[in-house]
């Protein structure tokens, strides 16, 4: 296999700060507290989220790029940072009106937002850190 047919993964790292509350509206306060503990605080809490966007594909024969990182950076800024940074995920975004803003769901939403803007022939995966020690990846396979 020549180098021209091999896949390479490229990564772009971004971060945003947001407030949220993990809360199931179908449950009463006691049940929410029991399941989600202090994460269900009605007055919200917040995180410094760190996002790693992974794009995989064969480098373009003309440019040598899997994807122009400036373009990936701009798309991530437009689709994620402008919508989530310094926001309340529950109140200020359209995505979590009926969806609990867990790290899992946030990663899935970010994936869909980016997927729509990135060449379908490139593979995409997002890793989202909610804290240094808690992070998720989507898709998982």
């Amino acid at each position: 296999m020549s180098v021209r047919e091999k896949k390479v993964a490229v990564f772009r790292k971004e971060h945003f700060n947001a407030a949220h509350r993990i809360f199931n509206p179908a449950w009463d306060d006691r049940k929410n507290e029991e399941v989600f503990g202090k994460c269900s605080n009605p007055n919200y809490h917040g995180h410094n989220y760190e996002l790693i966007v992974k794009v995989t594909g064969v480098p373009d024969a003309d440019t040598g790029y899997v994807m122009d990182m400036k373009v990936l950076s701009r798309i991530t800024a437009e689709e994620v940072l402008e919508k989530f940074d310094h926001k309340n995920l529950n109140l200020d975004t359209v995505f979590f009106k009926d969806l609990n803003p867990t790290a899992e769901h946030i990663a899935m939403v970010i994936y869909e937002l980016l997927r729509a803007r990135i060449d379908p022939k490139l593979e995409l995966q997002v890793r989202l850190y909610e804290t240094e020690r808690n992070f998720v990846e989507y898709p998982a396979d």
């Binding site: 700060n17 947001a18 407030a19 949220h20 919200y44 809490h45 917040g46 995180h47 410094n48 940074d85 310094h86 926001k87 309340n88 109140l91 200020d92 804290t131 240094e132």
Partner: peptide, 12 residues
């Protein structure tokens, strides 16, 4: 700036 967002934001 955006730190004044009335619905809060948050940090680790």
């Amino acid at each position: 700036g955006k730190c004044a967002n009335e619905n809060w934001h948050g940090h680790n």
